[in-house]
Amino acid sequence: MPQMAPLWWEILFIMFITVFITMSAILYHNINPLQGESDATIKNNTNLNWKW
């Protein structure tokens, strides 16, 4: 039927959705160690005595 999208559009859309979901899941699970390291560096930087 002419109003239907071509098959490769649907395949690209499904692949985009799967890549987006997997990347968001990977980033969600990798945030916790990165936040721990950034908190440690922020705590180390607060101990500096700056004299302006």
Rank of each mutant, 00 (worst) to 15 (best):
P2R: 15
P2E: 05
P2C: 07
Q3V: 14
P6E: 00
P6M: 02
L7F: 13
W9Q: 04
E10N: 11
I11S: 01
L12Y: 06
L12W: 05
F13W: 11
I14Y: 08
I14P: 00
I14K: 11
I14G: 02
M15K: 02
F16Q: 06
F16K: 02
F16I: 02
I17C: 00
T18A: 12
T18H: 04
T18S: 07
V19L: 14
F20V: 04
F20Q: 03
I21N: 00
T22M: 13
T22W: 07
T22L: 15
S24F: 03
S24P: 02
A25Y: 05
I26N: 04
L27F: 06
L27G: 05
Y28L: 15
Y28Q: 09
N30Y: 13
N30A: 15
N30W: 12
N32M: 13
P33C: 01
L34D: 00
Q35K: 09
Q35M: 14
E37K: 14
S38Y: 13
S38Q: 11
D39L: 13
A40F: 15
A40Y: 15
A40S: 09
A40C: 07
A40I: 09
T41Q: 15
T41S: 12
I42A: 03
I42C: 07
K43E: 08
K43N: 07
K43V: 08
K43L: 09
N44H: 12
N44P: 07
N44V: 04
N45W: 15
T46E: 02
T46P: 03
T46M: 08
T46Y: 11
L48M: 06
W50L: 11
K51P: 00
W52V: 09
W52C: 07
